[in-house]
Each structure stands twice: as C-alpha cells, then as structure tokens.
Amino acid sequence: MEVEQGQVFPRLLTVEDVANILCVPLSTVHHWAVQGEGPPSFKVGKHRRFDAALVAAWLEQRKNGAA
C-alpha cells in the first residue's frame, strides 16, 4: 500500500479526548461504545479510537434534535 504525498488522514481521538469534548465521564464513553451508542468508534488493536469529523457530526445531530 502506498501513501500519496499530501494525503491527509482523519484526526483520531481517544476515549479520554471524547469524554473531555463532550464533558461526560470516561465510563459513559466506554458504555456507549459497548452498547453501540454515542459517536461511532473503532478499535486499533486494543485501543478505541474516534474519527474527529464523525464525533463532530454526531454532536451536531444531537444539537439539532436528531437522535
């Protein structure tokens, strides 16, 4: 696999980052991930990560009243 020059990767957030951004406890973010709720996430090895753009979109949906 070759990476093209100038290719931009999405900004990845940790569980701690998301908890801080949303002002919720770490346990809430972990619970959401296990239950399939909250912002979309994925695992890299044993580490859960969130695409910053998807977290922002998820939050915007909540602010606009869509669930």
Rank of each mutant, 00 (worst) to 15 (best):
G65R: 03
V3G: 03
G36A: 06
F9L: 13
P25R: 12
V15P: 11
N20I: 02
T14Y: 04
A53S: 15
Q61V: 01
E37Q: 12
F50Y: 15
V15E: 09
P25M: 04
F50S: 07
L13S: 05
P39L: 11
M1A: 03
L26A: 04
V29L: 00
G65A: 13
N64M: 04
A33W: 09
H31G: 02
N20H: 08
V8T: 09
V34E: 10
E16S: 09
V15M: 07
R48A: 11
L54N: 09
I21S: 01
W58G: 10
H31P: 03
G38M: 09
L26K: 14
Q35W: 04
L26F: 01
V3F: 08
A57V: 04
G65S: 06
Q5E: 03
T28M: 01
N20E: 11
A66K: 14
L59E: 03
L13E: 00
L54C: 13
V34R: 12
A53P: 01
V34I: 10
F50T: 06
H31Y: 13
T28L: 06
K46R: 15
H31V: 12
E37I: 08
T14S: 14
E16K: 12
V3H: 01
G38L: 05
A33D: 07
R11K: 14
G6K: 08
V44I: 14
V3E: 10
N20P: 01
A52M: 07
E16R: 07
R11G: 02
K63L: 13
P40F: 07
D17F: 08
L54Q: 11
E4R: 14
N20K: 11
P10D: 05
A66V: 09
S41E: 02
Q7W: 13
E16N: 08
G38W: 05
L22P: 05
M1D: 01
Q61R: 14
V15K: 02
K46Y: 13
A53N: 15
I21W: 12
R11P: 01
R49A: 12
E16H: 06
K46I: 12
V15N: 12
G38Q: 02
E60G: 10
Q7Y: 13
M1V: 13
D17G: 13
Q35L: 10
Q7N: 03
D51E: 06
G65T: 03
C23E: 13
L26P: 05
H30Q: 13
A56P: 00
E16P: 04
A66E: 14
V18C: 12
V18F: 07
P10Y: 10
F50D: 09
Q35G: 01
A67G: 11
F42N: 14
R49S: 11
W58I: 09
L54R: 05
L54I: 00
C23W: 02
E37M: 07
V34T: 06
I21M: 13
G36S: 10
A67D: 10
S27Y: 02
E60T: 05
K46C: 15
K63D: 06
Q61L: 08
Q7A: 08
A66I: 14
L59G: 04
V44F: 12
R11M: 08
E37A: 02
Q35K: 11
E2I: 01
